[in-house]
Structure formats: structure tokens, C-alpha cells
């Protein structure tokens, strides 16, 4: 989608999200891609925490808050019911954080992916349990300090490769994205919505308080992740991941690490 074609209409507005939040930006972009004929299902996550307190909601599409472990099941049930009702033009979106996807929600997601029903599952990945105070998840990258991997005892395992797990389910569409590349992301959401089957998008969402950088640098930090090769923008095609964007210049990853407080101890350990 061209930049000028991105709809002006806001379907997610007025959340309690932190200043510079990459995750709420992902919701806005998703709804710009899908418009009003979408239903969101969000488990326990930053997005439900900053969105849904009675009687206010920033969502202008129907939205359901779901138990932490059950996003995949809920969107399967919803998709099945809508199919029986003959409502094939509604896009059911499961929108879960990295903990809700790669950890507690993995079992339910796996079953949903094999079940073959039509939905988009979006993992908005801010690389830790952020709304509970920055505890590590399976998606936390090597070297990151969190509340449960404190100081010098930073995360010492690599980030879980969720895309390989998803790819193993042989679903019709999967992609990685980053909120710093909105056109690329919107295109992928629209491609997923056009498919009559389970689709998965993993979108990297920088988090100022969790990652430790000034709030105005969210887009820049996301771009750095891609430019230094620690994250890539890809689509799964015929069982292989194909890049949808190749950075014109490659950055030294040390610049990415240097820009975030969460890597301070890791950096000092590197001398």
C-alpha cells in the first residue's frame, strides 16, 4: 500500500499505552489495513491492559478479551461460528503478545494453526512480559536484562524461533514484520486477510520502558533491529522465508545494543 493510500480513519484511539508504544501502533496499523469488518481477540497482554477498562474502550471494532492461554482456541471457535452464520467477509484477528504466543498460548495456537480455520493470528512482540513489569519471555533476546534476568544475569538463551514453529504447521501464510515499516506490515495484514485459512504475522514492536530508550526513538530502534540483521522482514513462501525488504545499508549490531539500556550489562561484558 502506498503511503498516501493508508486510511486516515482511526479505529483504535485513546488507549492508556505508554508514550512511544510500538504495540499500540501495531493495533492502529492492523485496523488501518482491515477496516471495520474485523473482530479482535486479545488475551492478557499489554494491549488488553491499556485498552479495556469498563466503560471505556479505544477499539472501534468488536473486541473480546480472552484468557491468557486461549487466543488460538477462541479465534477458532469464533471463526467456526461466523462460518455457520455465513459471515465470510469478517476477519477474525487474534492479537497476542510474545508471552501469550511463544509461551503460555503456544499449545492453543498450534492447534488453531493445524485446525485450518480462517483467521489472522498476530503476535506483537515486545520481547518480554511488559505490563507485569518486564519479566523475560521465550521471545526475550540473548543479552537482555529483565526483572527476572537482572543485571549481569541477563538472558543467556537465544530468542525462541517462533517462525520455524509456525512454518512447521504448513499454513498458507506467515510473515514477520516490524511497526517501523508500516507499509510492509499493512501489506502483510491485507495479504493474510485475503486467505481462507489460518495465517500468522509476527510483528516486532519496540517498547521504550522495557527496552530502555527515549520514547521518540521507537521507529528508529525498530529500523535499527532490521538494519543490523537482528530482525528481518520476510514472508513464508512454499516453505521458505523470503525477504520482503532488504536494508540498503547494514548497521553494526553494537549500535543497536548501545541504544538500549536493557543490553547495558551485556555490552559491558563484551568489553
Amino acid at each position: 500500500m502506498r503511503l498516501t493510500e493508508i486510511p486516515q480513519e482511526e479505529l483504535y484511539q485513546g488507549s492508556l499505552g505508554c508514550s512511544g508504544c510500538g504495540s499500540t501502533l501495531a493495533v492502529r496499523l492492523t485496523l488501518k489495513a482491515l477496516g471495520r469488518r474485523a473482530i479482535f481477540v486479545v488475551p492478557a497482554a499489554c494491549i488488553s491492559t491499556v485498552s479495556c477498562y469498563f466503560p471505556q474502550t479505544p477499539f472501534r471494532v468488536p473486541m473480546l478479551v480472552m484468557a491468557f492461554a486461549a487466543t488460538g482456541a477462541a479465534i477458532s471457535g469464533m471463526s467456526a461460528a461466523l462460518k455457520r452464520q455465513g459471515k465470510s467477509d469478517i476477519t477474525v484477528v487474534g492479537f497476542a503478545g510474545d508471552g501469550g504466543t511463544v509461551d503460555i498460548g503456544l499449545q492453543s495456537l498450534s492447534c488453531a494453526l493445524e485446525g485450518g480455520r480462517k483467521f489472522i493470528y498476530i503476535c506483537y512482540d515486545n520481547e518480554a512480559y511488559m505490563n507485569t513489569g518486564v519479566q523475560r519471555s521465550g521471545a526475550t533476546p540473548y543479552g537482555a536484562t529483565t526483572a527476572t534476568t537482572p543485571g549481569r544475569h541477563f538472558e543467556d538463551k537465544p530468542k525462541k524461533d517462533m517462525m520455524r514453529i509456525v512454518a512447521a504447521h504448513d499454513i498458507p501464510y506467515a510473515a514477520t514484520a516490524c511497526v517501523s515499516y508500516p507499509q510492509d506490515y499493512i501489506d502483510k495484514v491485507q495479504r493474510a486477510a485475503a486467505i481462507d485459512g489460518p495465517t500468522y504475522i509476527h510483528v516486532l514492536c519496540p517498547c521504550p520502558p522495557g527496552w530502555g530508550y527515549p520514547t521518540e526513538r521507537t521507529i528508529e530502534i525498530g529500523r535499527m533491529a532490521v538494519e543490523c540483521g537482528l530482525w528481518s522482514l520476510t514472508e513464508l513462501r512454499d516453505g521458505r522465508f523470503v525477504p520482503t525488504h532488504t536494508p540498503r545499508r547494514r548497521r553494526d549490531p553494537s549500535q543497536y545494543y548501545a541504544a538500549q539500556a536493557r543490553f547495558r550489562e551485556f555490552r559491558s561484558g563484551q568489553g
Partner: peptide, 27 residues
């Protein structure tokens, strides 16, 4: 005539029913 969702756990079974009920279907 029904959609039979073969889930991977009872937790998911009831969550799937909730999803169906939320959009107005018996489950």
C-alpha cells in the same frame, strides 16, 4: 450440521465455545 472443533485441550475447548458464543452462536 455443525462445526466440530477438535481442540488440543479442555481449556481450549471451552475457550472455543466462548468465542462462538461471543458472536452469537450456541455451543
Amino acid at each position: 450440521e455443525a462445526e466440530y472443533i477438535k481442540v488440543e485441550s479442555e481449556h481450549s475447548a471451552l475457550a472455543a465455545c466462548l468465542g462462538a458464543s461471543a458472536v452469537g452462536s450456541r455451543a
